[in-house]
Design a binder for these strands. Structure first.
Lengths: 207, 207
DNA sequence: TATTAATTCAACTATTCAATTGAATAGCAT
DNA sequence: ATGCTATTCAATTGAATAGTTGAATTAATA
C-alpha cells in the first residue's frame, strides 16, 4: 500500500464516522446512550422516533462501531462504544455554536423567553448551591457530576420537601439540547425556589 | 417554538456540519485550508482531485460555513472559517484511532515497514533536536510550531547543508495523513542524518 | 470590446441514504 | 413445539449526494 492509497483509506474511515453522526436522529441516539445503557424501546420513546427507524439508525451506528450492544435476556442494551465519541460530539456542538447563528441564538433566546436562567460553574464561584441531576436514576448511577443530588424530572413535584429553599438550585440533564432541566427550573421557580440551569454541555461519565 | 422543535432544529444544524465533513475529499480539503489560504487550483493539485469536483466540494463546505473565501484579483482563496473546526477534526482522528483497527494499524505499520520512526514531544524530553517543518513556506508563515525551521519537502535535497548531522531531526507536516514528512525522513536518513517524524497531529495556527 | 484566467453553475447519470411496511429472527417461558 | 416479547432484516419509494462534462460567470488585461 503506497502513501496515497493509505491516505485515501484513512480519510474514508474518518468520513464514515462523520457520516454516522451526520443525521439528527443518530446524534440524539448517541447522546442518549452516552448517559448509560438503553434499550431500543427506551431510545425510541425518549427520542420520539418510530421503533423501526430507531432500530435502523442504531444498526448504522453499530456498523461504524460507535455503539455496542449487550443482551440481557430478551432485551438488548445499547451503549457508547468509546469515550472519545462524547468528546467528538461536544466539539461538534462547539463548532455548531461558533458557525451557526441559528444554533447559537435559538437555544439561548428560547430559554431567555421562558425566563430560564443558565449559569456556568465559573459563574457560581464559591456561592453555595445544590447541584441537581434530573435524569433517570439509571443514568445517574451510570455516572454523574460530583456532589449532585438526583431527582428525576418526572418526580420533581413530589420531591420539593427534599430541597432547601435558602440555597440556589442548579439543575442539569443530558446536554444542552435536553429540555428536562428547563422544565424542572420552571417548576421549581413556580414553587418559590431560586433555580437555574447549568450551562456546561454533555459530560463524560464522572465530572 | 417549543422545546421539541428546538431540539430537532438544533440537531439538524449539527448533523449538517457532520455531513459536511462526512466525505474523504472534504476532510482533506479542510485539513489543507487549515494550513493557510489556498486557491482552488492549489487544492485540486495537492489533493489530486479534478478541478470541478474540488470546486463542488468547496461549495458544500462554504454552504455550511466551514470555509470562507477571499478574492485576490482573479484568484479566490479558501480559508478555514473557525478555529473550532481543526479541533473537531482532531477529535474525529482520535475517534477513528480508537474505533478502527484499520485506521490505527495501517498508518503505523506502513511507517514501520518503511522504517520511518515516529516520536512525540513527551518522548523527546530534554533531548536536543531540530524541529523541521516541511510544509510550503506560505503555510509555515501562516502558522507553525515554536522554534521550527522551515524547509519545504521539495527542497530538502538542496538544503542538506543547512542541517546539523549531530542533532536529531524531527520532521512534521500537515497532519498524520500527510506523507511529506515521511518522504523527508527517508531522504534525510539516506543522507546520513538521524531523522524521525513527529507524532502529534493537526496543529492549530501556533503551537 | 474582446480575450484570458480563474472559478462556479447546470444537467445528467449513478449511487447512497432515509422512512415505512411487513416479514423474519432471537431468546425465554410454558 | 408453541407463544410471547423484543429486535432485526428486507423491500420499496423517494430524497439526497457525488463525479463528470460542458456552459456560464467574474474579474482583469490588452
Amino acid at each position: 500500500m503506497n502513501s496515497i492509497s493509505l491516505k485515501e483509506t484513512s480519510y474514508s474511515i474518518l468520513a464514515d464516522i462523520a457520516k454516522a453522526i451526520g443525521h439528527p436522529h443518530r446524534l440524539e441516539l448517541l447522546e442518549l446512550v452516552a448517559q448509560g445503557p438503553k434499550s431500543v424501546d427506551t431510545l425510541a420513546r425518549e427520542a420520539r422516533m418510530s421503533f423501526a427507524n430507531t432500530s435502523q439508525h442504531l444498526q448504522r451506528l453499530k456498523q461504524f462501531k460507535l455503539v455496542k450492544t449487550k443482551r440481557d435476556f430478551t432485551t438488548i442494551y445499547y451503549t457508547i462504544a468509546d469515550d472519545s465519541i462524547p468528546m467528538l460530539i461536544k466539539y461538534l456542538h462547539q463548532t455548531g455554536f461558533n458557525l451557526s447563528q441559528d444554533f447559537k441564538h435559538t437555544l439561548s433566546s428560547y430559554r431567555s423567553n421562558e425566563l430560564i436562567k443558565t449559569v456556568s460553574f465559573e459563574e457560581l464561584e464559591s456561592q453555595e448551591y445544590i447541584l441537581l441531576d434530573v435524569r433517570e436514576e439509571t443514568e445517574f448511577n451510570f455516572g454523574h457530576r460530583q456532589g449532585a443530588l438526583n431527582i428525576p424530572h418526572t418526580k420533581i413535584k413530589s420531591s420539593l420537601t427534599k430541597l432547601d429553599k435558602s440555597k440556589l438550585i442548579v439543575a442539569y440533564c443530558r446536554g444542552e439540547l435536553c429540555s428536562y432541566a428547563d422544565t424542572v427550573v420552571q417548576k421549581l421557580t413556580d414553587a418559590g425556589f431560586n433555580a437555574v440551569r447549568l450551562k456546561d454541555i454533555l459530560m463524560t461519565k464522572s465530572a
